[in-house]
Design a binder for these strands. Sequence first.
RNA 1: UCCCCGAUAGCUCAAUUGGCAGAGCGAGCGGCUGUUAACCGCUAGGUUGUAGGUUCGAGUCCUACUCGGGGAGCCA
Length: 501
Amino acid sequence: METKTTIDRLSGFVGKTVTLSGWVYNTRASGKIAFLIVRDGTGLCQCVVEKSDETTGFFDEVRKLPQESSLEVTGLVSVDERAVGGYEVKVVDVRVVQTAQDFPITPKPHGIDFLMGHRHLWFRSQRQWHIMRIRATVIDEIRRYYNDNGYILVDTPIFAPAAGEGAQTLFQVDYFGDPVYLAQTGQLYVEAACMSHRKVYCFGPTFRAEKSKTRRHLTEFWMIEPEIAYASLDDVLDVAEDFICSVVQRVLRDHRDELVDLGRDIDALEAIKKPFYRMTYSEAAELLHSSKAVELLDNDLTQKTAEISELGKKIEELEAVAKGGGKQWKKDKAAAEVIEARELRAELEEQLRNIPTHKKLAAEFKWGADLGGSDETIISRLHERPVFVTHYPKYIKAFYMREDRDDDRVVENFDLLAPEGVGEIIGGSAREEDYDRLLARIQHDGLPQADYEWYLDLRRYGSVPHGGFGLGIERTVAWICGIKHLREAIAYPRMRGKFYP
RNA sequence: UCCCCGAUAGCUCAAUUGGCAGAGCGAGCGGCUGUUAACCGCUAGGUUGUAGGUUCGAGUCCUACUCGGGGAGCCA
């Protein structure tokens, strides 16, 4: 009697016969024995077909089965340390559902352009599969955290009437003849909602027409934005800190093995504990001017120079292997390693070229300017836990941020910089609750007051101190997984010049 | 918008000083009873991104363009 099950449940079926349904991940076959690595969406399992009286009917069909063909296999489950996942199925029957033809993504290296063009197939690969599962857990933990802590979900509109902030990064859409914009944030709308429910959050896609192509930007990304009535800046920081710890702990609990597979430094994640560092923008500026910043970059300079020369030696050695005598596969492996080492070297050389610029930018940083990407990197790398940078100059920040009542040059806002040079993953603030101050900011920024009348209403009818923040999902997933580029942190990334598939 | 790098077989990459366009993977055929990106043998596979130019001769040199990668600036 056969039982249908999935690979993640095989431990309960050792010594029993089960049927798995999935896809061929890879095959290795000889004349009398074939190994099928089957994936079924829950994991990988090695299925072994030995040529015998019972299996001659399908043995030849199975051993030539192309990658990603879909099939059902029935067989006896056993524990086997040699097999991926630790369990093995000795096949007694196979039913091919569909024979795939020339699956483009082979188990060999591919270029990023090719992979991105085949994103719909690429995420069947193990690495992408791991990242997407971790993303799902991150989102699940986000919802759980807010739902369990008394927050009400409020969905904010995607079609937004007003430009609001950062008008140059808006996508305009034709709304029955009227121009509207794809939402860059749901924040103004959750501010209204928190006056109804006290603690609320929105979670959804946001759109920014960033002109640049960088590893840190997408044109479509997901954001969680909690908003709390009767909250001070410190209250909001406490929430952000507790929330981030909760997400990191959950991923560590549920995905430790996957993080290891992704090559993530687990100890660095374990170190994400309360309290995070808190410093003001002015203190951050001092840090950039300090000898610590100079030392960090000088160390980088010598270290990267050493790494580059070491890589150069390694490349020469590998090239000698690749071009010399010996087994073909050894030469191929060496050639592949040469390509990898060259890419790494090019990256390091680029970084090396940028160090003097970064040093100059940090040393000449002037109070009043926004922190640049390299400045954020320096600050985050000087700390092993996340860093809150608070109280930025008023006029480089958005109109709705609350003026510091003790120092009207700055606002009560914050950015959270993730460690290891990842940079900003959260931006938030206390919101200006005073009608006159808010109106003055709207006028100073030259925003159309009529578009914000509904927002000003919130300051006319029972205005209270309140605040919140936005966390970028992709940046968080990229940080936790230790991946360099946001494009791998979302199933279908949207970037400048990229919208297929 | 600026700087750097790249574009050669379906994929990843070679090609010496400007001198016959090649290998691995993948595909097809054959072999192999414990493989781990399996391995071994054979076969097929090319308008070298586009348009010009220099030259006896251009994948290689020059100009423009297109696309991609990395970085800067800009930016939630």
